[in-house]
């Protein structure tokens, strides 16, 4: 049996149980969301004892070296005695300064961080509420802008999104942890064609990435596809059309599955993207964000058409997963 010490008490783990599940089961409060090792909400630090390598996959080397690990991916071997602490020192206080409805079910949440906060446009952060509720959101803002901007989709019954929609008033305090993720623009090869494709609030990181690339002087064609089920699922349409009007190399294509008209194209996102590519897309770079099935399917298709794996940056938005089992949608 492995055991975990947290704030001066020892907690036994069941065989094969993760540190996150073991602590939650025994009443310890640990922020968490995706439970799949992606969102990094459940980051903790081992103050004594070794964590399995698998618990540090995807973490920055600087965090690994300091003993940080993901509690949801940490299954200590039998006999391990691990002493852990929360990662509160990695969280910076922030204030919600503005909420703006972008569409029927998407709200822009803008935050001011009260400490220096380095990130790349397109990365994601975890917002931690005072009571420990945590959710990850991609950043739609640029580092040079004063505020962090998140696009929050209102999920029926969603704990955090419901709170944003109903209860939050400007001035509300939260903590922000991160950033994480490697879906961002890297300067260099300014003539390379870029493909940006997202569904729903997958537009958030792309909105950051496209502006980042343009400001960095990217001259190659940038194809931005935004897919939604129907026209009311699209947002920032006017802002992106205006951006494309100012930058002839930006080609913005909003796309819906149903209800399209002269203004908005109708059709399946993946097929339209593939049809728009040259026969051999050499030197292209892709950024794919949003619905996991759409992102993973498109990544595979792009690889098969000739994209190099290293040139495909994919950010699949995983739903938060409550302890009772995998139930999608409570973001």
């Amino acid at each position: 049996m492995a055991k975990v010490r947290h704030e001066s008490a020892w907690y036994p783990l069941e065989p094969g149980e993760t540190v996150l599940d073991g602590l939650l089961r025994q009443g310890v409060h640990v922020p968490h969301a995706c439970r799949a090792g992606a969102c990094q909400s459940c980051l903790m630090r081992a103050t004594s004892g070794a964590v399995p390598e698998a618990a540090q996959v995807g973490l920055k080397d600087t965090l690994k070296a300091r003993g940080y690990f993901l509690a949801c991916a940490c299954r200590p071997q039998a006999g391990t005695a691990l002493e852990v602490a929360g990662a509160s020192e990695l969280r910076v206080p922030a204030r919600i300064v503005d909420l703006e409805s972008l569409s029927g079910d998407v709200v822009a949440v803008r935050l001011e961080v009260e400490a220096p906060f380095d990130y790349r446009a397109g990365q994601y952060v975890t917002v931690v509420r005072e009571d420990g509720l945590a959710r990850s959101y991609s950043l739609a803002s640029l580092p040079r802008e004063d505020r962090l901007e998140l696009h929050v989709r209102l999920v029926p019954g969603g704990a955090m999104s419901g709170w944003f929609a109903r209860d939050v008033r400007p001035g509300e305090r939260v903590h922000v942890q991160g950033p994480a993720g490697d879906c961002f623009y890297v300067p260099g090869q300014p003539e390379a064609p870029l493909l940006l494709a997202g569904t729903g609030t997958g537009l958030a990181p792309l909105y950051g990435i496209v502006r980042d690339a343009l400001e960095a002087g990217h001259t190659g064609p940038i194809h931005l596809f935004h897919g939604a089920l129907e026209p009311r699922g699209l947002y920032l349409v006017d802002a992106l059309r205006a951006l494309a009007a100012r930058h002839p190399n930006l080609h913005y294509r909003p796309l819906v599955l149903a209800g399209g008209d002269g203004d908005v194209e109708e059709g399946p996102l993946e097929a339209r993207i593939l049809a728009s590519l040259p026969k051999r897309p050499v030197g292209w770079r892709a950024f794919l964000c949003g619905n996991p099935e759409a992102v993973l399917s498109l990544r595979k298709k792009l690889f098969l058409t000739g994209f190099s794996l290293k040139d495909i940056h994919a950010d699949a938005f995983l739903p938060s997963t409550p302890r009772a089992g995998p139930v999608a949608g409570a973001a």
Binding site: K300, F303, L304, G306, S308, L309
Partner: peptide, 10 residues
Amino acid sequence: VEVFYRKVLG
């Protein structure tokens, strides 16, 4: 590996 993986996956 990319050439090989592409063939296998296709």
